[in-house]
Design a protein around this nucleic acid. Structure first.
Lengths: 203, 203
DNA sequence: CTTTTATGAATGAAGG
DNA sequence: CCTTCATTCATAAAAG
């Protein structure tokens, strides 16, 4: 993750009564974000430690810790059992898929799919077809994205140029031109192999 | 965890008018960030669940671990840090689009789109994708509108989504779904005081 | 300001 | 593989 590699792609949007609709972060927001993530990281680490501590004191034989769906609340009214008819990858599955996709192995062979699918089952409901479709779509879309990056929106209404210091974002109209053709998003992954492996162990 | 340690030295020097010290992120980076956070949330969730599972089988000897629970609000993707941008057609554009749509030419072919887009550019910011999406949505919705009023009863449990927005549910053995209660908060913070307090105990 | 609605965009799945 | 459709998500705009 290198924020330093800025892309001046952002179009400057006007401020709307105080709400800024750009991907511009102030130091404060940045700090907040960093702290938030830091909190997550800390929690994860501590939970892992905790887990270690606990398991080292007892024997886990027989314990079955499968996928637990965390949806504590929100299930108040019983009715409306509208089951979803469409698969939605869990963040975990997404990450793994994304990772595999980035391996450049552009050929999701039949056999490979089977493997991937079975592995992902540990992180939630999934079928081979889902995996297959995912790769198909993923490729098709990443491809189209390259060809038709296009200048996206920014719509103006009757706006009274509210001057805000943040409003000055330079829209370098120069030669920076297009986006890096191959912005192969570096996959997101745990920076801590420890946690990563811990999680594996759980499942 | 390395990521969050990242120094924020990348102060963005803005050329226009004055130097602005903000962080600018591309959509790509933004999305990455969201996913990263989402992954953390998932990990926390699972770890917490694990902890529950473990402690429920043993008597909390020594370790005093209360019932930590993961706030569902944190468990989904799409954490909003900065609003996402969105194109909004100008009245003029809308009128033209609407007109074209009415021509009955329900086929907004690739080439056609290009033409339309370039023409509409004269009336405001717009991209081919915008045009494409507009037609897609327009058709889909005009279609749904017809079927909506007609089929009024029986088991078509579809469109009655007037229930509490947070109310969602999925059958246990069904497709795993990930709901996403909307968080209006601009800052992401741990919504569960329980976790933070628990963490205190560890330190 | 908060809630609701309308609609632009994202994406899983189906067809060719 | 590519295109198209259906459904869902998120947010700008509108309503309260």
């Amino acid at each position: 993750m290198e924020w330093e590699k800025q892309e001046q792609e952002q179009q400057q949007q006007q401020e709307n009564g105080g709400a800024l609709y750009v991907k511009v972060m102030t130091d404060e927001q940045m700090e907040l974000l960093r702290r938030q993530i830091s909190v997550y990281a800390t929690i994860c680490e501590q939970l892992v430690e905790m887990h270690k501590a606990i398991t080292s004191q007892q024997d886990l034989t027989g314990m079955r810790l499968g996928n637990i769906y965390c949806d504590p609340l929100m299930s108040s009214s019983g009715h409306k059992i509208t089951a979803r008819q469409r698969w939605t990858p869990t963040p975990m599955q997404l990450q793994i898929l994304e990772h595999i996709f980035d391996q450049g192995t552009g050929t999701p062979s039949k056999q490979k799919i089977k493997e991937i699918a079975s592995e992902l089952t540990q992180h939630g409901q999934i079928s081979e077809t889902n995996v297959y479709n995912w790769f198909q779509n993923r490729r098709a879309r990443s491809k189209r994205k390259q060809l038709g990056p296009a200048a996206n929106n920014a719509e103006s209404e009757v706006e009274t140029e509210v001057e805000s210091p943040k409003e000055k974002k330079a829209k370098s109209e120069d030669i920076h031109s297009h986006e890096n053709p191959n912005t192969r998003a570096e996959d997101i992954s745990f920076q801590s192999p420890e946690i990563s492996s811990e999680l594996q162990a759980f499942n």
